[in-house]
Design a protein around this nucleic acid. Structure first.
Lengths: 238, 238
DNA sequence: AGCGATGCTAAAATGGTTCTGAAAACGCGT
DNA sequence: ACGCGTTTTCAGAACCATTTTAGCATCGCT
């Protein structure tokens, strides 16, 4: 899941980022309201964590602006005061949820999950596709019952693949959803990571799940793309 | 267990904190009602100890407010008077138990344990995981029958680990649950304590129980997150 | 078959995270 | 106030993940 954090206290910001990364999310930071508003309006995030107290820009205003601009990304507001007044003002401005500082970090993660439940379908703890299973809380991947150890990035990438199966995913899309805003579209990082994933996830097994679609991207599927055997119904070329 | 104490008499507050620490609990203090109410509403505590007599805020009111805000954390009230009137007023406001000052410290600990019995599952006196055993009342840890001596913090940390096994615990989560509110997310205290624990709990034995998940946190488990069960032939990582 | 474009992969470079031992700060009991 | 044990900070080392690089393999088209 990709989350934007708008928070101008650098310590707090960086703490939140680390925590969300550890929870398996991709996370961009904006340290000013202006920057944050622009970034949020790209619509590329699954959720926004927004501090109400910002130097350059009131969080409430920022929230209202975004909604006026038809940005529908779920917004979770962070307030210093847990007074009901602030809460109402925030929800009124279009925030979806609200958390008073100081807050319980697990609660932040839980609420983000709740906010994006629609997006993430059921927030099933178990992702499954074919003979592959990902146990999210245990952070464990198995295929045919065998454990597969992955690094953090590999795990996030595989999670994205398994959540978007049977669909061609361009490098641009993968870069946008699995990497943060510093992603360089000219590098071949994605290829390298796909290769690493394949080595662990596909090579030891008979049936590959990760397929290359030349000139387009990759596809995660138990069915190889383009019927290899029987019919090759005509595809439009361009 | 994490407990919030709301008490504006500094001597009393510090005495309670020390005592609860000694009983193996993590303990945050609030010296004013306002502050206490905010803190309590984070939902991060297993119980709240609340003095009825506060300068800025009546304890009874505070309790009622919390309940109105749907905070369900067990609350134990401390009253100067042991009159029945106060007791009834407190329980009426939503407190779960009540203790008249002066009180026997062991009674406070016992009542807190009773209040949180549901939370802590059965308040099992014996925690067990694999060949490790923690005898809570005696505060003793053994592995393969051998006693292991731990400092207080090490003990509390290990207790948290053994109560949350087979789950990846991020530093943020550990910091929140094993340290008090002054925890600094940028320090490496956790790493240092984990190292100390490992030296006593893992190094002398063949099978490590504490595993590092790089970029994420730690996991307490007898099943290492790695190691494909089949072959371990090639040592290529990545 | 040949060619250029595209994808793959090993290995080096980079950058970041974790570990460790020692010193400093703190807290407790005397 | 002093000394002792615990907890925290710090800095360097070791370790690991990620990215870059560069050469090779493969694909699709002519």
């Amino acid at each position: 899941m990709k989350i934007l954090v708008i928070e101008d206290n650098p310590r707090m910001a960086s703490a939140i980022q680390k925590g969300l990364n550890a929870a398996g999310h991709v996370c961009d930071m904006c340290i000013s309201g202006r920057e944050g508003e622009e970034q949020a309006s790209t619509g590329e995030y699954d959720a926004v964590v927004l501090d109400v107290m910002l130097q350059d820009h009131d969080g409430i205003d920022l929230c209202r602006n975004l909604r006026r601009r038809e940005v529908r990304t779920p917004i979770l507001m962070l307030t210093a005061l847990s007074g009901t007044k602030d809460k109402i003002a925030g929800l009124d401005a279009g925030a979806d949820d609200y958390l008073g500082k100081p807050f319980d970090f697990e609660e932040l993660v839980a609420r983000l999950r709740a906010l994006t439940r629609r997006v993430t379908d059921l927030d099933s703890a178990l992702l499954r596709y074919g003979d592959m299973e990902i146990d999210m809380p245990r952070r464990r991947v198995t295929r045919q019952g065998k454990y597969i150890e992955l690094t953090n990035k590999q795990f996030v990438l595989l999670e994205y693949l398994i959540r978007n199966p049977d669909r061609v995913l361009s490098r641009a899309v993968l870069g946008q959803n699995v990497w943060d805003m510093n992603f360089d579209p000219f590098s071949n990082v994605i290829d390298v990571h796909i290769a690493a994933l394949r080595k662990k996830v596909d090579r030891p097994f008979d049936k590959p799940l990760i397929h290359t679609i030349m000139g387009v991207g990759y596809m995660f599927s138990s069915q190889p793309p383009q019927g290899s055997s029987a019919d090759d119904s005509d595809l439009e070329q361009n």
